[in-house]
Amino acid sequence: MTAAFLYGGAGILLFALGLWSLLVHEPLLRKLIALNIMGAGVFHVFIAVAHRGDGTPPDPVPHALVLTGIVVAVSATALALALHNRLEQDASDSAQSTSTSTAGLLSGLSISPQSDIIRHE
């Protein structure tokens, strides 16, 4: 009971923390991490609920729900990153068309498409 509350309560705190970060922080990557933290919080609650009694085996259903939820969260994160990547690409393209020097500077820093996002933050 206490263990379940501690785990579940931690999940709720994670949810709240993620929510706050999502709303307050502007960069997209932080928002995405925040959303994933919120998701992790909800999954915590599910897992905490699964193991309740002493000695009885844990409930497999919430475990399976969490697995499903993780895959869904991964998919959503991937799509969001791709959309953001596209925005960045557009921005750098238009920047280059107006001023090649700036674009060259940007591209010099750029190692990979993925790192674009991180650098932007």
Binding site: I12, F15, L28, K31, L35, M38, A76, A80, L87
Partner: peptide, 20 residues
Amino acid sequence: VAANLRYLLVGLLGSMSYLL
């Protein structure tokens, strides 16, 4: 792209709230 990225994030927030 920008509008739908926002839509995706809003939808995710809604889903999280629903899932909780």
